[in-house]
Amino acid sequence: MKKHLVSANDLTKDDAVLVLDTAKELAAISDGLVKKLPTLRGRTVVNLFFEDSTRTRISFEAASKRLSADVINFSAKGSSVSKGESLKDTAQTLQSMGADAVVIRHGSSGAPHLLATRNWINAVVINAGDGTHEHPTQALLDAYTIRKHLRNNTGDLSGLRVAIVGDILHSRVARSNAILLKTLGATPIMVAPPTLLPVGIKDWSGEYSYNLDEVLPEVDAVMMLRVQQERMNDAYFPTAREYARNFGLNIRRQKTMQKHALVLHPGPMNRGMEITAEVADSANSVVIEQVANGVSVRMAVLYLLLGGTNNETGDKN
C-alpha cells in the first residue's frame, strides 16, 4: 500500500481487498469482548478537522482508540487556523507534536494531497473528506457493507451494479465510490438530474442516468446521497418536492428493486427528501450498519498504514 490514503485511486485492487479483509477480522474481534487492541500503543493520531463532522471524527477517534493509539483532536474551526494560520503552519505544529498520522477533513479539495506531498510533515495522511473531491474511507466502508451482504464478506465486488443517486457534482462520497467500486470490479451508475452531474461525467468510469426508475430494478445496491437544501437556491433543481418526486427513494420505488438489493446512505439523512423514513428503516437498509462498519474499516486503514515499519503492506511469507 502507498504511504498515504488521499484518494481511492491510491488503492490497488489487492490493497482494497486487504483493507476489507483486515476490517473483517477486526470486526470479528471487536464484536466479542475485545474492545481494545494494543497494536498502535505509543502512536499518535491527530484528527485535524477544518470542517465540522462529528460523525466522521468520532468514527476515526473510536478506531484509533480501539487500537490503543493516542488521539489528539485538533478542531481547526474557530481556532487560529480559520484565518491567517496556514495549512503549512498547522502541519508543522503537528509535526513538532510528533504526530504519526494525520486524519484530515478540509473544505478545500486537495488539502490532504498538499499535506501528503509537500514535505511539511512526515506523518501518514488519511483523507477524511476534502471539499468536493474525495472521502476514501467512506467508500471503503460502503464497499465493506456491500461485500458483507452480497459477496459473503470475501473477495471483490465483481459483477455488482451500484447506483449512486443525488448530488454527484458536489459529492466527495460519490467520487471515491465511483473509483473504488470500479477498482473492485463493480459498475457504479451515477443517477442525478443533469444539473447535478459533473460536466465530464461521460468520461468517468461507469455509467450515468437521469432516470432513477429505469436504473433501480437492475442494481444490487443503491446509495442515496444527501441533497443540500441550498442547491435549490442555486437553481440546480426547481423545488425540493420535484427533486424528491424524481430522485427520492420511497417504498413504491424500493419495491421495483431486486429482493437482495441494499439501500445505503452515508448520512446524515434528509428523511423525506432523498429517502423516506420507511425505506431508511426497511429490512434492506444497511444505513445503521454502515456506521459500525466505518469503525472497523478505519481501524483496518490505521493498522495497515501505521502498524508496520514502512510503506509496504502484505505478508511476504
Binding site: 479539495s109 474525495e134 459533473p198 465530464g200 461525467i201 468517468w204
Partner: peptide, 18 residues
C-alpha cells in the same frame, strides 16, 4: 470557479470555469 471546467475538474473536485 477554480480551474478549467472539464472531466479533470470534476475528478479533482475543483469548481469548473467553463
Amino acid at each position: 470557479a477554480q480551474m478549467n471546467e472539464s472531466t479533470l475538474s470534476g475528478q479533482l473536485g475543483l469548481t469548473g470555469w467553463p
